[in-house]
Design a protein around this nucleic acid. Structure first.
Lengths: 220, 220
DNA sequence: CGATTCACTTACCAAGTGGTAAACATTCAC
DNA sequence: GTGAATGTTTACCACTTGGTAAGTGAATCG
């Protein structure tokens, strides 16, 4: 008689309240969209294909978000949230000085290994430009501000070579993201993107960054 | 009476032999395609729009290349040629050791300033993957081989820190290309991509790379 | 139970896609 | 000059795209 009891054998394959199931469907769509946008690209992803992959019809997607562009916005928000979650621990817990930079790099590589589509999506959005880029920038602003502030503090403390924090951030950003995502370029120079080579690559990158950023050769 | 005299008032606006004019048309198409593929993207570029921008019809393009994919291949070849031309002097002439790396970085920034679509196109193709990526890798193979060989030699000579040349190349590649092209990210960290800031950025990047690559602090 | 809201589907559309077929004008070879 | 090759256009097509309108069956609520 009570509402919760209706979950059994109602024809619906999933349990939970209607609101829960709706949220779950939206999450599934967002996940699939993030995946496809991040790998195939935004233009190359059709709503039909996206829906078919989920066993839905295109209009089910358009029911939750009124247009593809709005869906993109939602995916951006979700991707940024995922990113912030993935890096939150690293940015707060990890020690100071070089350790922290190293922890961040490790986190990026971890994300690159486990969720390559996430980094690919960031690339894709910044490539699309326009409103989408503006949104991702807004979403990640606090994140970036913290990273920049941290770099500035480390410079003040003399643990990192002094330079423009913003530019250093960009250098580090594109270096790390490139080393983590430029699979084709890696192939071009004869580096097959296997698990083992990724570990090597991360080590190389860390020593590269360390040499570039740290003031004194720290004790290993 | 002789053939060359027919160039006046024949309805054609350009002079030269038919073969020359044909080649010129093809070059115009390749240039416009490179531009649009490199900025808007391959998927986002329609043959109709491309042709309209040139005052042609789509079928004029499809006459010279039987399909959009084949056109892409042709644009790839041309872009790689442009790149090799832009870097040829730098890779052969410039001195040894750090000077040469610096010369290359300056060349990349020069290209990024004058022909941003060219670097954007490389990014786009490597994003597309598949045959296109394979082709660009093939085209640039000798180029990459020289860069890698150079790095290896400099390491042997002790002028550059020893590490995997391929990985160092990728690190340097993504760092330089990122600093030169990641305009959106630059905006995110509060760096407006003006001419002046680009100069600053290049200087920062050079000191970044130098610290990362050079073994001893050279005399300025 | 009955009415309503909700999540979703089927049916449809106008616009745009890459690509084909054929007609047409110009230029070249003879 | 004549005929063939060449470069280009107009007309057309099958297909896909994002998006609208209307309908449907189940969950929810009174």
């Amino acid at each position: 008689m009570a509402a919760p009891l209706t979950l059994a054998g109602t024809g619906s394959l999933v349990s939970g309240s209607r609101a829960e199931r709706t949220r779950e469907t939206e999450n599934r769509i967002l996940g699939a969209a993030l995946d496809s946008f991040g790998t195939a690209g935004y233009d190359a992803t059709s709503l039909d294909a996206l829906a078919a992959g989920l066993g839905l019809s295109k209009q089910a997607i358009l029911y939750h978000w009124p247009s593809k562009a709005v869906l993109l916005d939602a995916v951006i928000d979700r991707a940024c949230l995922d990113l912030i979650v993935a890096f939150d621990g690293v940015l707060t817990d990890a020690g100071s000085g070089w350790e922290r930079v190293e922890a961040v790099v490790r986190a990026v590589f971890r994300v690159a290994m486990r969720r390559p589509e996430l980094l690919g999506f960031i690339r894709e959005v910044s490539r699309l430009g326009g409103d989408a880029s503006a949104r991702i920038i807004t979403d990640l602003e606090p994140f970036v501000a913290r990273a920049r502030g941290y770099l500035a503090r480390e410079m003040d403390a003399g643990r990192i070579r002094r330079c423009d924090p913003g530019l250093l951030f960009v250098s580090a950003y594109s270096t790390v993201l490139g080393a983590a995502t430029e699979v084709e370029v890696l192939r071009a120079v004869g580096v097959e993107p296997t698990l083992r080579s990724t570990v090597v690559r991360r080590r190389e990158l860390l020593s590269f960054l360390r040499a570039a950023m740290v003031t004194e050769p720290a004790v290993p």
